[in-house]
Each structure stands twice: as C-alpha cells, then as structure tokens.
Nucleic acid binder design. Structure first.
Length: 584
RNA sequence: GUCCCCGUAGCUCAGCUGGAUAGAGCGACAGCCUCCUAAGCUGUAGGUCACAGGUUCGAAUCCUGUCGGGGACGCCA
C-alpha cells in the first residue's frame, strides 16, 4: 500500500493506452515516468514528471503530453485540483478522505507498516564490523557496525533475505603478534616479568586481562614451553577471549550477526586453492613483476616476480599480488576466498561495510567478485568515514599508540547504546561524523535521538491519558480502526498524515540507495511535525488531541497519534533502537 | 604521480538518483507556559550550491578541468 506507487501505475496505464491508440508513439520507455510528492508541498499533494520525461522520446511538447494526461486523470474519482504547472509538471490533490483512509493500514499493520516486497526475497549478504580480533572495538568500528546493521535492517524491511555477517581475521601476522603479546602478559600475570612491552608487540593494557584469564585457566603450563608449542593455543585463546568482548559490545548496541566466518578455517579448508583454480581456468592469474608504487616509496622495495591476479581486466588500476615473499597468501588472496565462499553460499548480491582506510581496496575486491563469479555476483562497498569525538565542541584525542583511544564500551557506558546508534546514522556513511558526547546526552532538539524519542513518548503519553480519563474512547487498535476520521481537517494534521503515508516510499528509496541515514532524517521530520502540532494545541485548545466532551474528535486524533508513534517505532526498529514509552 | 571520497547559510548538515522559489538545526534577533511533558513551539535575518567550462527543455545533482580538505597506493589487515 503505497499511494504514490498506485498512482504511478495508473498513470503508466494511461500512457500505454495513448501509445496503443496512437496518441503517443509506441515503445516509449515509461520507467522514468513517476508520481512523487513534489519537492515543495505547497505545489500539490501529488505530482508527475511524466510529460517532461517523455517529451523528447515522443517528439512532443511537455505541456501537450501533460494536457493529455490531465484529461485522462480527470476521470479518476479521487483526483482533484488537476493542473499543469511549471515546465510540464502535472499536479493534483486527492480528496482528504483518501489520506485519512491511508491511516488505517498503519494501525492495522503496526510496526510492520512500511515493509515492502521490493527485494522479492533475494538473498543479500551484508558484512560489517569484521574488526581484527586483536583488541576491543573502538568508536571507529562502531560506525561501520551501526551502518552495516541498519542497512541490513533496512534491506530486510524492503523485502530482501538478509544475512548479517562478520569476517574474523584470525589468520596472518597480526594474530601471531597477538599471541606473543598475550604470552608476555601471561608471564606478567604469573608474576614473572616486569611488563615492559618491546617494539613489535601490542602494548594495550587490555591484554593484561587476557594474560590473567589464561593464567587462571592453564596455570604454569606454557611457561617452559617453546613458542612453537604455545603459539597456536594462545592465539586461539586470545582470539576467543577478544571476540567475546567484541560480541558483547555489539550486543550492547543491539547488533547480533548471524554468521561469523573465520579466515583461518577458510584457508585451512583449502578455499584459496579453489580461488587459484577458478582464476587459472579463466586465465586470470600469471607471474609478473609490478612497478614500484609511486609517491611514498617503501625503503626495502625490490622488483620481484609475483603471482598476480589480472584485476586490471575488471577496472582496477594494477594487477594484484596473491602471495607474500614468504610464500604465504596475501590478505587479498584470503579475502578472495572468502568472497568466493559467499558467492557459493548463494549470494549474488554482497555488501561490505569498510572503514575509510580501506578505500584503496575497493576496486580490487569488486574486480575479484566479478571475476570469481564470472559476472554473476556483484559487490557493493560502503566506506565509512572517520568519527571525530568531541566533548562540548573540544576534540578528544584518539591515539591507539598512546593507549588513549576511546573504546566503544566506554562510549556506550557514557551515552547509551541507542544514542550511539542513532547519532552514527545521522550522517551519510561517506561523510565524516562529529560525535559530541555532551550533545548525545543533551535533551534538546539538537540531539536527534532525544528529539525523536520524545515524539514517541509524547504520543504514548497522550494515549495513556486517553485510556485513563475518556469515557467512550478506546485506545485499542481494533477499536480505533472503526473510528470516523473526517474530523481531522487542520492543515497541520493533514500534513502530518501525508508525511506518515510516505513512510513506505522512504523505506524503498533508502533501501534502493542503500542509505540508512535517510531514515534518521525522515524520523526527525516526523518528530518535528508532531511536536509542532502538539505545541499549537497550547494556544489553540481546540487543536489538542484529547477533547473532553467530544469522543469522536478525540478518537480520530488518537488514530493520528497512534499512527505517528507506530511509524516512529517502525523506523527505530530498522535501527535496532527501542522506542521509549516515557522520558525520565 | 595515480586512484577514491568530500566542498551547499557564520557553524553542523539535508537535498528523495536531473525538476518548480535550494531546506533544517545551532548561533543571532523577536515572541509563546493557569492548559495533553516549554526537555517544546512560532517568526525574522542569513546563499554566486568551491571555481570554470560542457551535456539539456531544466544541473547543487551528470561529464571534463582547476583549486582546497581527507583517505589509499607490493610482501599490514
């Protein structure tokens, strides 16, 4: 149920008729001819660009086509105030009863309202966070986590079959370094060494906890053993420990991924060899020597023949190495194996959410997915820009080396998971984000979490009041469903209704663009109109939602209030944020 | 040197994939509480959409170039 979709369909029906009876040339592409809310609500309630879009291919003047459409649409019983405007827009209004009736599905469907079948159950894999298991999550990771999870929720709402996935980078040098660093902390926990962490080890204090946990579990078991014995078990132990923290932090944000894929398991299962096979079959692999990188030149650069993937065939800038000089696979080779695995699990559409520092990696990975799937699968990459933490406008220094980086759990403890989630979604993923700790706690219009939650709480407050002191008015959805709505006539009421009715459209366009932040802005907009209406009731008491002595009016307004709360809750659900019943 | 992202009001940012007179918040200024939560609301001021070309009925949006900011550039992940 999406009014704009319905009218787009009708309009295209008329256009097809015109093509059939020769008033328009046959074979026109109608896909760009749509019915939308106009940019400026003052113009009309509905608007179509059809005449302008079709003018050129039809060889007719926009206003001429618009005129024909106007005539056709004039026969629709609900359409009124039809007019051709500007360069060829066709504008019209619907009778208020159409908008009022559109409120009912909101109450009937509850937070399911806005769901779409656009995705048609197509499987989509969204991979996000995928932080190295070498330390706790930072604020930077949180952004990718939140964006990825909200995107997954959005696509689900839009009818896709979404899998939420985390790729554990538990292979390679970094986790070996983790194991060695853990060993030092383990000795420290047993009182053996002063904790002086040499160069080349992870200095983070958090590893003390891992060392102690290990000592508690295994006692002195590893003390006399050589590295070759303890490396693997300590690595496993540390990774499991830290993944536990990570999952815990994610849970506090309401994020639960369905699948955790282990890089090491994939490699050990021979997934990289399969990649090589596929590449060889398609002649996409060769041994060659790369030119040294321009600009910042590594000191130890020497030309060396390497095993290369022909990424340039798929739009990358250079071919990419698959093997390190010690003979082990590059991260890229492993990652190819992982994405091949996702493809073989049935995902033709894959989305990865990465940090800004991986921007240079996008082309090669997209190339890889195209190559490995022979063009059947496509990878989209959402790059998340940096988060700048401030407090009262003053930047907080974040340095991993100095150990003063802000751990995600500290941020959550200070401002709460919901605030973290919502604020991280108030910017597009590819724009930098300022996160002000004071703002996140502020209870003002400046703080979008609060502002949107307040709208929901206010709505619920009205419904509570109605339930307490209004004879003849029921607040149950089934009872509200039968209520007459004609008394909703104020222009601000109708304007709020039109905004609520746009919700399914917002879901679809946001999902199509893979931009969850649009939901945040929409919810803010809904909140603003609701607060506005509320406050008008201060002066104009006849506009208050609850009208003693007028049960019909009160009931109709309760439908609107309930619908507002429902749409807000439906949006927050996509974000994994709990709508609050009241503010404390 | 190459590639990617960004540049919109004093500040922080939207702008529905090319539409009509470019919109919010903050800050500034002027107002609104006997009353469903003033934790809110209303109004005013503020713009060469970085710049220059191009594409077209129409450009903040698409293309090219320039300037400015950020990120990336074999054997880290």
């Amino acid at each position: 149920m999406n009014l704009f979709k319905i009218y787009t369909g009708r309009l295209r029906g008329f256009l097809r008729q015109m093509m059939n009876d020769g008033r328009l040339p046959a074979g026109l592409d109608l896909s760009r001819a749509v019915v939308q809310p106009p940019r400026d609500e003052a113009h009309a309630e509905m608007s179509s660009n059809a005449a302008m879009v079709l003018a050129k291919p039809a060889g007719r003047k926009p206003r001429e086509i618009a005129g024909m459409l106007k005539e056709a649409l004039a026969g629709e019983p609900q359409v009124r105030d039809l007019e051709v405007a500007g360069p060829g827009f066709l504008n019209w209004n619907l009778g208020p009863e159409v908008w009022l009736e559109a409120l009912r599905p909101i109450l009937r469907q509850g937070t399911a309202y806005g769901a779409s079948d656009m995705g048609a159950g197509i499987p989509v894999n969204v991979e996000y966070v995928s932080a190295n298991p070498t330390g706790p999550l930072t604020v930077g990771h949180a952004r990718g986590a939140v964006i990825g999870d909200a995107l997954a929720g959005l696509l689900e709402k839009a009818g896709y079959d979404v899998t939420r996935e985390y790729y554990i980078n538990d292979a390679g040098n970094q986790v070996d370094t983790l194991a060695r660093s853990t060993y030092l902390r383990y000795r420290e926990a047993l009182g053996l060494d002063e904790a002086r962490i040499p160069e080349g080890f992870y200095p983070g204090e958090y590893l003390k906890d891992v060392g102690q946990a290990l000592a508690a579990r295994d006692g002195k078991r590893w003390l006399e053993e050589p590295e070759s014995v303890w490396l693997a078990p300590l690595r496993t132990f540390a990774i499991e420990e830290i993944m536990g923290w990570i999952k815990n932090d994610l849970a506090k944000l309401g994020i639960r991924q369905n699948v955790f894929s282990s890089e090491r398991s994939l490699v050990e299962a021979g997934a990289v060899d399969e990649v090589l096979q596929v590449l060889e079959q398609r002649d996409l692999i060769y041994v060659g020597t790369l030119d040294p990188p321009k600009g910042k030149q590594p000191e130890d650069w020497e030309p060396r023949p390497q095993t290369l993937f022909r990424a340039t065939r798929f739009g990358d800038d250079i071919d990419r190495p698959l093997k390190k000089s010690d003979g082990s696979w590059t991260y890229f080779a492993n990652d190819m194996a992982y994405h091949l695995d996702k493809y073989r699990r049935g995902f033709r559409r894959q989305i990865d959410v990465w940090g800004a520092d991986h921007g240079g990696y996008v082309k090669r990975m997209r190339s890889a997915v195209t190559a490995l799937s022979d063009g059947e699968a496509a990878l989209e990459v959402k790059i998340c820009q940096l988060v700048k933490l401030t407090r009262g406008g003053q930047p907080l220094r974040m340095s991993k080396r100095a150990g003063t980086f802000v751990a995600l759990r500290d941020l959550i403890d200070e401002v709460g998971g919901d605030a973290v989630r919502f604020i991280m979604l108030t910017r597009k993923n590819d724009a930098p984000l300022n996160f002000d700790l004071d703002k996140a706690l502020e209870q003002s219009r400046d703080n979008p979490v609060f502002y949107v939650q307040y709208a929901h709480a206010r709505a619920m407050s009205v419904i509570r009041h109605a339930g307490e002191g209004f004879a003849g008015v029921s607040t149950d959805p089934p009872a509200l469903d039968g209520v007459a709505l004609e008394s909703l006539t104020d222009s601000d009421e109708l304007s709020l209704i039109r905004l609520l009715v746009r919700w399914p459209r917002v879901v679809e366009s946001s999902a199509e663009a893979a931009e969850p932040h649009r939901i945040a802005f929409y919810l803010y907009d809904v909140a603003a109109r609701f607060h506005g209406l509320w406050t008008r009731g201060k002066d104009e008491t006849e506009l208050r939602f609850l009208q003693p002595g007028a049960p019909e009016v009160t009931a109709a307004r309760l439908v609107l209030v309930k619908a507002t709360a429902t749409v807000v809750a439906s949006g927050l659900q996509i974000f994994g944020v709990q709508p609050v019943e009241e503010l404390r």
